[in-house]
Amino acid sequence: MSLKVVVDMDVCQDHGQCVFSAPDVFQLDGEGHLVLLVEEPDESLRSACEDAADVCPVQAITIEG
């Protein structure tokens, strides 16, 4: 099963810590709100995505697959 990243936007509070772990997957827009750039990133980004999920202060990120 391929890598899939899910962000619970009801939980996300735009801390932006995930951006440091996986800048190719997460970004803060001009108003400081989180944007998920790629829902199904390349397998080579798995570790970075798992790190991003770890460092989310409100645990809004789930890695599936």
Partner: peptide, 9 residues
């Protein structure tokens, strides 16, 4: 100022 403080990290 989250974006600004993050830029200093």
């Amino acid at each position: 100022m989250l974006r600004e403080v993050n830029a200093y990290r």
